[in-house]
């Protein structure tokens, strides 16, 4: 299927626009057309499908599944459900309060909140198509492991004191009003609405991401990346993670950048560290979480992710 997009870009860039294949600029334009078309096509299809499936998994159900489970199982369930259910970040506050209020441990709740924004099915498939399925496996695995270990550490350190006190006092109804059971047609309509809404929100990230990827593709020489940011430069991994902290992008915007970095020979571990840090640490998300978590907890949250991604980067660079 990927060939279709290469053919489209060939036709548009070399045929219709008549650019010379040998020039850097033609390479940039080709990359831009191919990746933009591919990402928007996959994004739309995947979001429709994910939205449709998600209409069966409400947060009420997730809460129900996590309640009263032995801790080990609860952590695993929390990150698995976190990975497959991308809740709108605006729902994370009610979700957090309601999880804690119905007896789900703080560590398990945090495991869910760490993994959920980091791993998405859209990201998983895009990475697979653009870079390879080994990268998808690493992306999902790291997202789940960071959540599980982070949650367990928070639990072990007994950090409930860093939750805003009002949260504990909220009286959560035992059986929150169940959502209605909509007809298939209605679920599809809703998925379509959501897809349109998300597309409206993420298209700039995609274009910027593809743009950056295209410029690196056309103008940054492979030798430069290998020479300066290779696995033997021990500073490359922490630099990649820290440089990405203030950057925030939807995962779809990072894919083309990661694709071209790997292509240019940036080690997989360094690329993964950069990708995870860009996707996971976002200022808007932290501002929202500040409503329920004290500043100390947010600082620890960010510190944990930074450390986890740096370690990940070194480990993957050493192994592959």
């Amino acid at each position: 299927m990927a060939d279709t997009f290469i053919m489209l870009a060939d036709w548009l860039v070399y045929g219709l626009l008549g650019l010379d294949r040998q020039t850097h600029f033609a390479g940039v334009a080709h990359f831009f057309v191919e990746d933009t078309a591919k990402i928007f096509f996959l994004l739309t299809t995947l979001m429709l499908l994910a939205g449709f499936i998600r209409s069966w998994i409400s947060p009420e159900k997730v809460r129900h599944w996590l309640q009263g489970k032995p801790k080990g199982l609860a952590y695993f369930l929390a990150v698995t459900l976190g990975a497959i259910t991308p809740f709108c970040s605006c729902s994370s506050i009610p979700l957090f309060i309601s999880f804690l209020g119905s007896g789900i441990p703080f560590g398990v709740t945090m495991a869910f909140l760490i993994t959920s924004p980091m791993v998405s099915e859209v990201g998983a498939v895009l990475f697979g198509e653009a870079i390879g399925w080994h990268f998808t496996l690493a992306y999902v695995g790291i997202g789940m492991a960071t959540g599980m270990v982070g949650g367990a550490l928070i639990d072990r350190m007994k950090l409930e004191k860093w939750v805003e006190p009002f949260v504990i006092r909220v009286n959560v109804p035992v059986d929150g009003a169940e959502g209605t059971k909509p007809a298939i047609r209605k679920r599809f309509d809703r998925a379509w609405n959501e897809t349109r809404d998300i597309l409206k929100r993420v298209w700039p990230y995609v274009l910027i991401g593809v743009g950056i990827g295209a410029v690196i593709h056309g103008y940054v020489p492979q030798e430069w990346i290998a020479g300066n940011l290779g696995a033997d430069n021990l500073l490359a991994v922490p630099l990649a993670v820290i440089a990405a902290v203030p950057l925030y992008s939807n995962v779809t915007g990072v894919v083309p950048v990661a694709e071209v970095l790997v292509d240019k020979g940036l080690p997989v571990g360094t690329t993964l560290a950069f990708v995870m840090s860009t996707v996971a640490i976002s200022l808007p998300e932290l501002v929202i979480l500040r409503k329920v978590l004290k500043l100390e907890m947010l600082a620890l949250f960010v510190a944990w992710l930074v450390v986890a991604f740096i370690v990940t980067g070194y480990v993957f660079n050493a192994l592959f």
């Binding site: 409400s58 947060p59 009420e60 809460r63 809740f87 709108c88 605006c90 729902s91 506050i93 009610p94 979700l95 309060i97 309601s98 209020g101 009002f166 949260v167 006092r169 909220v170 009286n171 959560v172 109804p173 929150g176 009003a177 959502g179 409503k291 329920v292």
Partner: peptide
């Protein structure tokens, strides 16, 4: 108010 939202049985907003 998040507390009121949750206590009235709402999670998804």
């Amino acid at each position: 108010d998040p507390a009121e939202i949750v206590s009235r049985g709402v999670i998804s907003i």
